[in-house]
Amino acid sequence: MVKTQINIGGLTIKNPVMTASGTYGYGLEYTDFVDLARLGGIVVKGTTLHPRQGNPYPRMAETPAGMLNAVGLQNKGAHHFCQEIYPQIAHLDTAVVVNVSGSTVEDYIATAEMIASLPNVPAIELNISCPNVKEGGMAFGVTCAGAAEVVRAVRRVYPKTLIVKLSPNVTDITEIARTVEAEGADSISMINTLLGMAIDAERRRPILSTVTGGLSGPAVKPVALRMVWQTSKAVQVPIIGMGGIASATDAIEFLLAGASAIQVGTYNFVDPSITETIVTGIEDYMHRHGIDDINQLVGALQL
């Protein structure tokens, strides 16, 4: 029997395979395809303090090796999550992590406080790629000062495991990583989507209503791997890697690059059972290579 247990700050998960926010709903949508108890954890869709309708359609576009999305964090708000969704998922035999988003520091604080009161949610993932409306729309996570401000504020009110999700749309992601670690992040998840766009040449118009959107899928994997590897050398906290993971081999590459766990996102739309397949594939890899503890793979890239 191989040991696949991973520690993420104060959170212990049964294996390193998690789902990425925005691609898995609240987990319940996938129960016909996956035994959720086989997964290390699920990260539910982005939750904001107040309900959000999201961006106008069209807000998704397929690309040759992935997809663009500009959904805009559509959700019914934190109160709805606590009162209606949480009772349906509190019993799940896997770690339930809530992705927390906001447009002001005060929004982040209020949402984090609400989620902290839920006993069966052991962690939040702080999405600092959101536009700070008080600063003219620049994302919190693209400057050290912005990242520090929101993480510091949430850390003061949130006592459980705090995972901070980083934007790749920066010059040096290690600077942001070191900043959020210094402000109390227990873990870092990365990468969020890369900024991209798609054009309808016949109509001479952008395909997305917002013109630009977030690129995810296999196309971003080499960038994500590079950023995880660089960041693993810059911080001490565990990293949760994501970006184009579509197989157990992809997941293992992220572990070798320095990630302690991984999240599967876009490929859930291609194969709804892929997460469970990846769990089995990692176990098979460990057996084949005589590895009895998954932690032996973390950062084991040989240069």
Rank of each mutant, 00 (worst) to 15 (best):
N99K: 00
E125F: 02
D32P: 01
S187I: 02
A145G: 04
V220E: 05
N69K: 14
K134G: 11
V43Q: 14
I8G: 10
G10S: 08
I199H: 07
H289M: 14
T104C: 12
V279R: 06
S189W: 00
E202N: 11
M18A: 09
I252V: 15
L208R: 02
V264W: 01
D186L: 00
I163R: 02
V223Q: 11
L118M: 12
N15C: 12
K3Q: 13
K233C: 08
L92A: 08
H287M: 15
S260D: 09
L36D: 06
A70R: 00
A139I: 00
A177Y: 05
T231V: 12
T212M: 14
G213W: 03
V157H: 05
A110V: 04
T31L: 04
Q296F: 01
M286Y: 03
P218R: 11
T31F: 03
A147P: 08
V298M: 13
I13R: 05
G184W: 08
P87S: 12
I163H: 06
M138Q: 11
V100Q: 04
Y24W: 14
V142H: 07
R156N: 10
P206K: 00
R205L: 10
S101K: 01
A219R: 11
H79T: 13
Y26V: 13
T266D: 09
G66N: 11
G281T: 08
A95S: 13
S247D: 09
M227E: 03
T277I: 13
I124V: 10
M190T: 04
H80K: 07
P87R: 07
F254M: 11
A201I: 15
A37H: 10
T193E: 05
M197R: 09
L303V: 09
D293P: 07
E181H: 11
Y57D: 15
K3P: 01
N75Q: 07
N55T: 14
M227Q: 05
N268I: 08
D35Y: 02
D186H: 03
Q53P: 02
V298Q: 12
E183P: 06
H80M: 06
T48D: 04
G213S: 02
M114K: 15
T171E: 09
S117H: 14
F81H: 08
A257V: 10
P159H: 06
L194S: 13
D35I: 00
L297F: 09
